[in-house]
Design a protein around this nucleic acid. Structure first.
Length: 501
RNA sequence: GGCGGCAUAGCCAAGUAGCCAAGGCGGCGGUCUGCAAAACCGCUAUUCAUGGGUGCAAGUCCCAUUGCCGCCUCCA
């Protein structure tokens, strides 16, 4: 078996074979007119998964992800808010980095910006003019689509249909309504660059061709992006690049399907979206990643808080296993064989991450079983299996990135745990009850725990109450802690305290 | 109107011709527990939108119908 990917160009799964020693990858990045939303995250999680898997297979990679920091929308926003377009672009670029880092999305090697490559863009346009593929009209430069016979090969559109569609912007200076702008003459008050055709700025799509060729060469292996980019963006990239070089521009076009919000695509322009930042405030990055990976990247996915919540439970199960296994004692030194064959079988088949998730849950189940049967060898095996899958899929398994903070009271592994939200009504009831029953030690512990804001003492008070079989007190204490966001589980190793976040 | 795609349990979601239709969430019953929680065990789609067709064999291929979605204008 070997990796197969669905290539939009052929609409088939194709065996992936890179052209050279280094796999050349271009990720279509954001137009930074607004903050990254959750739909963007789907695209970049998809590219993250592919990149991690290619590295797992041993390939050397060169990854470029652009920021389009000048275009109609950025200018529009700049004029609207009376802020320099560069400030707007930079703000959203920083926010992209922030949320992508939180999501544990691997950084590309280079993040070029359109405005840093105006020279390359101008040279590319000039080449197209020289070859007769582009023409000037009123300071604008257009690509003549009828000169490029392959136009439409990616999106499977026929030129006649495009024109018949009649939704194409009718600009009088265009020779053919389907022609697209490579360069746009600037209007007053708009940012501009000097060019052989006067002051202006790049059209949309030319920057990707220019940057892709500049950093990766005329033919690259993989070009990734959302399926909404297929037409016109990627179609135009093919036209202008292949017209200029006479060579294939991209060998494998990989497109992820859309994320829908109540039945409609999340989109910046319609202001119909949920920002990535907003969701990261509510859900752990691992939960959000799980949400994407439980669907195949080529299936449309519905955004829904209910689904997200059920994924939160799914993730909690995985985390519970990691904690339970670690408590039961994992032999860190044993280097068990990694179960890569099933993993590769799934991933080779067009990155079937839902299948890998099923493998994870199977291993978790076996692992829990092993804990119950005190089968240390089996547990070690399953634990390393789960960890292997999680890391391969880019989950962050570090302790501090887990959702539930777990503290074991009586085994000496406790971390200092402070109460954050405090409604002490229930605690006070427990305190009064302890006093009235003459349990002074318990009463003192409750009082101190409350004073110094330390829930460990409260948990110990509960343990003592349980020892004395004063279950009314212990139940009140558990209820009190639950009201503050902690749950207590009694185990043979002591009381386990979990904090849900 | 043109092009492309999708329809699998209460919900999410794999499966693209051949043993019992993955997995998760939820639900139900049991074990454990002072009570819980977590975990474990068992159950939860005689059936894959509908109607035809081709195969020894179809959720999986073909045709039609219905319903949804994307693109055709900026979008990941």
């Amino acid at each position: 078996m070997a990796l197969s990917l669905t290539n939009t160009l052929t609409q088939k799964k194709e065996l992936f074979k890179p052209l050279g020693d280094t796999v050349k990858i271009y990720i279509c990045g954001m137009t930074v007119q607004g903050p990254p939303h959750f739909g963007h995250m789907r695209a970049y999680i998809t590219s993250d998964i592919l990149i991690r898997y290619l590295e797992f297979l041993g390939y050397k990679l060169k990854v470029i992800q652009n920021f389009t920091d000048i275009d109609d929308k950025v200018i529009e926003k700049s004029l609207e808010e009376k802020i320099d377009y560069r400030v707007i672009a930079e703000k959203h670029i920083q926010e992209y980095y922030e949320v992508a880092d939180k999501m544990n999305i691997r950084r590309a090697d280079i993040y070029p910006k359109a405005t840093q490559h105006i020279q390359e863009i101008i040279e590319l346009i000039q080449k197209l003019i020289d070859k007769g593929y582009a023409y000037e009209a009123g300071g604008d430069i257009y690509f003549a689509v009828d000169k490029f016979s392959d136009y439409g090969k990616l999106s499977k559109k026929k030129l006649d249909d495009l024109i018949a569609g009649a939704r194409v912007e009718v600009r009088t200076q265009k020779k053919n309504p389907a022609d697209f702008a490579l360069w746009k003459a600037s209007k007053p008050n708009e940012p501009y660059w000097e060019s052989p055709w006067g002051q202006g700025r790049p059209g949309w799509a030319i920057e990707c061709s220019a940057m892709s060729m500049h950093y990766l060469g005329e033919t690259i292996d993989l070009h990734l992006g959302g399926e909404d980019l297929i037409f016109p963006h990627h179609e135009n990239e093919i036209a202008q690049s292949e017209a200029a070089t006479g060579k294939p521009f991209v060998r494998y076009w990989i497109h992820n399907s859309m994320l829908n919000l109540t039945g409609e695509k999340m989109s910046k322009s319609t202001r119909h979206f949920i920002t990535a930042k907003e969701l990261l405030d509510k859900y752990a990055p691992n939960v959000l990643r799980l949400y994407f990976l439980k669907s195949h990247y080529r299936s449309p996915q519905e955004f829904d808080f209910g689904i997200l919540d059920s994924n939160k439970e799914s993730w909690a199960r995985i985390e519970d296993f990691l904690y339970s296994a670690e408590e039961a004692g994992i032999d860190e030194n044993s280097k068990p064989q990694v179960p890569s064959s099933k993993f590769m079988e799934a991933m080779d088949d067009d990155l079937n991450t839902p299948k890998v998730m099923a493998l994870i849950f199977d291993a978790v189940k076996e692992g829990f079983s092993a804990i119950q049967n005190k089968n240390t060898n089996e547990l070690n095996k399953r634990y390393s299996e789960v960890m292997f899958y999680l890391r391969a899929l880019g989950f962050n398994t570090d302790l501090q990135n887990r959702t539930n903070k777990r503290i074991l009271i009586s085994t000496g592994t406790q971390v200092s745990a402070k109460l954050e939200f405090r409604d002490i009504t229930t605690l006070m009831k427990a305190l009064e009850l302890a006093k009235s029953l003459g349990y002074n030690i318990i009463a003192n512990l409750i009082e101190r725990g409350n004073d110094i804001n330390d829930m460990n003492l409260l948990a110990i008070a509960r343990d003592l109450a349980r020892e004395k079989k004063s279950y009314e007190i212990s139940d009140l204490l558990r209820k009190g802690l639950e009201e503050m966001g902690y749950s207590l589980e009694d185990t043979d190793k002591g009381t386990r305290i979990k904090r849900k976040s």
